[in-house]
Design a binder for these strands. Structure first.
Lengths: 230, 230
DNA sequence: ACCTGAACACCGTTCAAGT
DNA sequence: ACCTGAACACCGTTCAAGT
């Protein structure tokens, strides 16, 4: 939203009383830029402060801790999520669309995956949950079963991306596939016959088609449990 | 395996040339003890060294890096996994047993979950994969579909535990449930009707029954795709 | 080969002091 | 309220030196 005006050369070493004229959104913007470039572990208070041209402890004026900054980044990312247009049509298709969109967002911001898994949902995560629950209700899945279905879908989606990301972002993914095949072929035939037979498939990185297959299995199982009346 | 003989008081500050008489297994044992007590982030080279009564850099004699130590811990844990007795009976039951056992191991060592998700499988992870693939073959799921099913099951299991762990290990889980309910009830009714209606279910932490429900949905979906001929 | 001593280049956070 | 300066209590890893 805000323009890219920051001071790339941080010449002005302010003296004690002078303000740097920062804001929460500016801190967050810079944090996201660093995360995009160097991964989430690259976001340190000291680097963030340097990039903003202040001392590290100046950040504590805007955020009480580092995790508060990470949490804010997380919920910010989900704010871009438009649930309305995804829930049209058959309820199963709506659910598949929601999960596809979630995966896409996470793949675009791979560094957020560990945060997603460990932190409870912020306001925007609740919005995604509401859309999921409403679709399930339309499909006749209610009450406790609806919550279980909601969790199963999210767990599958998050888990898939968590497995997918380290492989997808690896710059030497081609070489890694070859090493995987070599490793499998060195296994003893009698104890690893199935693994050896499927080596080419196992070496392939999981992708769109694998995600879809598993997602549909799960949706079929959920549809099978749905309440038939109506 | 090895007895608990370590020197709790690390009085003897060795001089340059003297050996501390360590070994890879001793380093690993101590690392696991710390991980069990303080979480995986508590395992630092410096604390590990202090616990073993050596200087931090002495550890580099046994392991080339910290991640090498963590990887070794990870595969060690899976070594305790006995796949043989779990695969008897119907193939669907065998798969459910394998996933239950995996979840149980991960729940017993919650600090390993992030490692599991990010790292590719070591030798013992391959053993688990082989057992899964053989059961799928017995169920008529072969080729690419078998690999996809294997991944979907693992993704679901890992993802579930990843979501489950931070909630299960939280000492103030009861208070957190109440805060969740309060947060949900403060949402506007018109935009969050489904979420509000299911507040008590949503506040409950995911557990055994939720895991089973989702697992069976997935297995039913997989069974539906199976090759029927024999 | 195995270990110490010292250093390098980092962390998050707190506290007192300035305007 | 907002920022600096200085400090505290940490990190992983490397390098030269000793036996």
């Amino acid at each position: 939203m805000t323009a890219r005006r920051r001071n790339p050369a941080r010449q002005p070493p302010r003296t004690a009383g002078q303000r740097a004229d920062l804001s929460r959104v500016q801190v967050l913007e810079e944090a996201r830029r660093i995360a995009e470039r160097d991964g989430i572990d690259g976001v340190t208070m000291r680097r963030l402060a340097t990039a903003l041209g202040v001392m590290p402890n100046a950040l504590y004026t805007y955020f009480p801790s580092k995790v508060a900054i990470l949490d804010a980044i997380l919920d910010d990312t989900l704010a871009a999520f438009e649930t309305g247009d995804l829930t049209a049509g058959r309820w199963q298709d709506g659910l598949a669309n929601l999960m596809r969109a979630s995966r896409r967002i996470l793949l675009a911001h791979p560094h957020l995956v560990p945060l997603f898994l460990s932190r409870p949902g912020g306001p925007n995560a609740l919005r995604l949950g509401e859309a999921t629950l409403q679709l399930l209700e339309r499909g006749g899945v209610r009450g406790r079963k609806a919550v279980e279905a909601c969790r199963a879908l999210l767990v599958y989606t998050m888990g898939f991306v968590a497995i997918e990301v380290p492989r997808a972002t690896d710059p030497e993914s081609a070489e890694r596939s070859e090493r995987t095949i070599a490793a499998i072929e060195s296994l003893p035939e009698e104890r690893f016959s199935a693994t050896r037979a499927l080596a080419p498939h196992l070496a392939r990185h999981p992708g769109d088609r694998d995600f879809e297959t598993g997602l549909h299995w799960l949706l079929e199982g959920i549809a099978g449990t749905a309440d038939r009346r109506r």
